[in-house]
Design a protein around this nucleic acid. Sequence first.
DNA 1: GTGGTCTAGACCACG
DNA 2: GTGGTCTAGACCACT
Lengths: 125, 125, 125, 125
Amino acid sequence: MFMIDPLSRTAIYEQLVEQLETLILKGAVQQGEQLPSVRTLSIKLSVNPNTIQKAYNEMDSRGLIYSVPGKGCFVSMDAKERLIESTREKLPMLDSLLARLKLGRIPKLTVIEHVEMVYQGGVSV
Amino acid sequence: MFMIDPLSRTAIYEQLVEQLETLILKGAVQQGEQLPSVRTLSIKLSVNPNTIQKAYNEMDSRGLIYSVPGKGCFVSMDAKERLIESTREKLPMLDSLLARLKLGRIPKLTVIEHVEMVYQGGVSV
Amino acid sequence: MFMIDPLSRTAIYEQLVEQLETLILKGAVQQGEQLPSVRTLSIKLSVNPNTIQKAYNEMDSRGLIYSVPGKGCFVSMDAKERLIESTREKLPMLDSLLARLKLGRIPKLTVIEHVEMVYQGGVSV
Amino acid sequence: MFMIDPLSRTAIYEQLVEQLETLILKGAVQQGEQLPSVRTLSIKLSVNPNTIQKAYNEMDSRGLIYSVPGKGCFVSMDAKERLIESTREKLPMLDSLLARLKLGRIPKLTVIEHVEMVYQGGVSV
DNA sequence: GTGGTCTAGACCACG
DNA sequence: GTGGTCTAGACCACT
């Protein structure tokens, strides 16, 4: 369910957050669904429980999941909606990346091809 | 010449590297040209000299600049070429960003608009 | 009789204690009256029996209820009196809350309005 | 500057957050001011650095402070404003507390006296 | 069993 | 020096 690269420059807990976000967006994890417990996941991923906890906390504070002490962590009912709404904030990243590609002589056509490919249902991330 | 945002979450030395890259790509800094000395730049930007040094080291190790002991740092003669060549390595970033935008319900048309805008010379970064 | 919010950050057993306290103070539960059994209540509220037991234990140790083995739990004859007496212990909470409201620029008039409203029989909790 | 009660039921990091909030509201800590470093504070309070870090993180994510890796943590320029704006969210707590006091036979006059006392600049928290 | 907090101690990146 | 992350292991409260 989760794939962790301990050598990556991005923190483990951030990898978890990002992956859980895409799982929610893809519908692979339904709203209201219970997430794997901190301990279970920590063992499966051979990662310290504190690290899992930190990832869950982060998402909790963003309202994407909620945790009920003694019961478990659950996906918020409006998690997907929240994520969709916040996506527009990523457009500036697109702009700066495109500008860099343009300077690097990547032809517009190549970029458009990538857009088409991804949006034709092609690329999974 | 350089604009540093000390509050940004991206490290200062990375900001310097990125900006120098775009300056080279834009031709604002010519190949062979001498770069400001570490001390000069550290004072101008009120940034720790170590930080400047780190940025220069990073670019040196990538062959984009070279330092002549006792004289200073200079832009490599093939800096621009190297940068252009390495740009293709950034395409996977584009793919994953596009996939995220798609999941976040950003319409393809919106993305295309951004591509057009940037490639029509619109956006400067 | 009881309303439990399993998503609340306050523990379920504390919700039960607080509600039972106000029921006693309001006279909705008379002194000497028998309380629902742990099992009954746990089913009605779909809450773990241990949780109900914990709430009852808490109130027992405070002398608000007493349990007769084999018969059930009963409200102490002096429960209401005890609760009223212990209320003064809550005044420091009022002070610190007021201090925080003052720092947060809540006007005195607004606070007074709330006092009036509650004491005019307005607010039920 | 900070007072920690390790025996309190409220978590240490929450005690820190609350105290820092009141310090900001009182103006004892100015906006833009640098906070004590994680390590320094952890030694002064004989608390684990991670705990201090957690408190700082919490306030960072709420926009009350910002941290610059390698430099330190600083109070946000709009910290006080944010805190004042969020104070209204505490009014429901006032209502429920007042309702409990009323049930516990605390006379309205007594409550009003406390309000007057605090708002006449009396109580420091 | 669950989540939450805390300590101790380590390592990294940044300035 | 700074903040940030991670591990290991412990304890607590709640269900």
